[in-house]
């Protein structure tokens, strides 16, 4: 067994196992952590396929953003997962039936799947062969030349999303005490400490 095959079985096995743990683990935080493990192993599978760009995107987007968002939601919202899972036994038969139907459908589709040999022979677009450039480079070449217009427009859409989120949610709250380091450093002993003579049996007024 070659090293690539060994890694394939490692990543594939880990993906399936952690996928199973996502739905079976009792603690929702552990579920999300297993989900992250599944993503990372799937990224490993992409690397084995030579699709290193997809692998990195999977890690950056799904692990870095989506899973962390899940984690936030799970930790911040008070969702009673034990209660959500109560009907599990009751709905198991119909769930299993739907799962079986979906599995059969996928098998039927994949079984009759043929790829046009012409497509395999001549890839569309000005992409160089996989040996000379990495697929990150190849994507970058079309993204920043032919599709630069879409790229910039999508950037503006994201800018609107950012401005919108700030406009609709950011409030300045009066009366919040903030640390001002410049003021702190500018304080002298004379401003901070006051020496008073305390007359006996009279005290001082604060």
């Amino acid at each position: 067994m070659s090293a690539a095959a060994a890694f394939f079985y490692l990543f594939a096995g880990m993906t399936v196992a952690s996928g199973f743990m996502v739905i079976s683990s009792r603690n929702p935080v552990a579920s999300v952590l297993f989900l992250i493990l599944a993503f990372v192993n799937a990224a490993g599978l992409f690397v084995l396929l030579g699709a290193e760009f997809l692998a990195m995107i999977l890690v950056v987007v799904y692990v870095g953003a989506v899973a962390v968002l899940f984690l936030f939601v799970v930790m911040m919202l008070d969702v009673d997962f034990a209660q959500l899972r109560q009907g599990f036994q009751q709905y198991l038969p119909i769930g299993a039936l739907i799962g079986a139907i979906l599995l059969i459908e996928i098998l039927l589709v994949v079984g009759s799947w043929t790829i046009d040999p012409g497509l395999v022979q001549a890839p569309l677009g000005p992409l160089a062969s996989a040996e000379s450039v990495t697929n990150t480079q190849a994507l970058g070449r079309v993204l920043y030349t032919d599709y630069v217009f879409y790229f910039q427009l999508a950037g503006l859409v994201l800018l609107v999303a950012m401005i919108g989120a700030i406009v609709l949610t950011l409030r300045d709250r009066p009366g919040v005490k903030r640390q001002n380091i410049a003021t702190q450093n500018a304080r002298t002993q004379g401003m901070a400490v006051e020496t008073r003579k305390v007359p006996s049996r009279q005290g001082v007024e604060v």
Binding site: F149, Y150, L153, A154, L156, V157, V160, A161, I163, G164, V167, L168
Partner: peptide
Amino acid sequence: LIAMYLGLELQSLAAYVIAAFHR
């Protein structure tokens, strides 16, 4: 179609925000 959709989305997204501008 892609440029049309991106233009439309840029327009719509900004419109959703200004509809709720009096938050």
